[in-house]
């Protein structure tokens, strides 16, 4: 089978064992990723984004209650592979992961160039010379000056450490890279520089990305598609150029309305209430208890409804189509308006 970097997840589940019962962190997730495209996975803290990454790569903790579903990579269901085969043919080789907060997990006593080289040697038969050349190449792609190859992690800024971690993921030339919050801990300028480098890699090498983040603004830097996760499930998925201007699901709409915009900022909204427990999620639609548009039907779990333009939304309002769904959400909500910037008077 040709190595394309095409990924299809079908009904992926990952439940953890806990004292209170199974934690339904990934609960029936289906997603498609085409070659050279990027899908952004958005959602609030604890909704299961990192668990999804772990499930795709089978990097599982000990307390797994249930793990199942299909992961089709270039036409082959890799869930059926033995662990040995999966490690040799898939993990890091075809699909790599930049784990959340990985830059804090670099080995402090090993030079970063060496750490990248090790990531490479484990997975590909290469001579020392080839390895060195490859390490230099990935560092260059990420705009890390060559003399940094011989530095120790503590000598580097956060931005450079994060680049080193991304270099480790890219070293073996995977067709798909999963980025779990790759820039969240970094400054704005560093963030923008790293996003520029990732865009270039995507464009020039046709690498596909799954970009996990809770930062909606940054997600738009790479995303061709957007998938919104809520309580372990994908509640909306679709093209980025349709999603950003006009999200469909009541949760997505509120999420987008809570994002401050630097240019032309209007009022900000927030979602009242707490995110649900994943041990004992609400029956039916999981967003129902926080949704201002919920009705009788929402007690039943909604399927993913499809719109004419190929988007999917898990909400009963869309049973009669896209127009009807949007029309049902016209009711205005309270917002936090930008501040009047005239300061208090000098004289009391």
């Amino acid at each position: 089978m040709a190595e394309n970097g095409r990924l299809r997840l079908k009904d992926l589940y990952l439940h953890y064992r806990s004292q209170k019962g199974p934690v339904q962190a990934v609960d029936g997730v289906s997603l498609h990723l085409e070659r050279g495209r990027a899908v952004a996975v958005l959602g609030e803290s604890g909704c299961g984004k990192s668990s999804l990454a772990r499930a795709i790569l089978r990097l599982l903790p000990r307390n797994v209650e249930y793990f199942g579903g299909e992961v089709w990579l270039d036409g082959r269901n890799v869930m059926e592979l033995s662990e040995e085969k999966f490690r040799r043919e898939v993990r890091w080789v075809r699909i790599a992961l930049v784990a959340q907060a990985a830059m804090n997990a670099l080995n402090p006593v090993v030079r970063v160039g060496k750490q990248v080289a090790e990531a490479l040697r484990v997975h590909r038969q290469m001579t020392g010379k080839q390895v060195r050349r490859r390490v230099r190449d990935v560092f260059r792609q990420l705009e890390v000056p060559e003399d940094f190859i011989d530095s120790y992690p503590f000598e580097l800024s956060g931005g450079m450490r994060q680049r080193a971690v991304i270099a480790m993921a890219l070293a073996a030339g995977p067709r798909i890279v999963i980025l779990d919050e790759p820039t969240s801990a970094l400054d704005l300028l560093t963030q923008a520089n790293i996003m520029n480098a990732l865009k270039r890699i995507k464009e020039e090498q046709g690498t596909s990305f799954i970009f996990i983040t809770h930062d909606v603004g940054t997600s738009s830097e790479l995303a061709d598609e957007v998938a919104v996760m809520y309580a372990g499930q994908v509640v909306e998925v679709g093209r980025a150029d349709r999603f950003f201007p006009d999200p469909l699901h009541p949760y997505s709409r509120k999420l987008m309305a809570s994002v401050p915009r630097l240019h032309g900022g209007g009022g900000l909204e927030f979602i009242p209430g707490q995110p649900p427990s994943l041990v004992d999620p609400p029956e039916g639609c999981r967003f129902m208890p926080r949704c201002q548009f919920s009705f009788e039907k929402c007690r039943e779990a909604p399927p993913l409804f499809h719109t004419d333009d190929g988007r999917g939304v898990r909400c009963w309002l869309y049973e009669q189509g896209c127009e009807a769904g949007l029309a049902a959400q016209r009711e205005p909500t309270a917002a936090v308006e930008p501040m009047d910037d005239t300061p208090p008077p000098e004289d009391a």
Binding site: A38, L188, A192, M195, K199, V216, G217, T218, S219, S220, E221, L222, A223, D224, A240, D241, F243, F244, P245, M256, V259, R261, L262, H263
Partner: peptide, 9 residues
């Protein structure tokens, strides 16, 4: 700073 706009990509 990216405002969430699809053109950013």
């Amino acid at each position: 700073i990216p405002d969430p706009e699809p053109e950013n990509a």
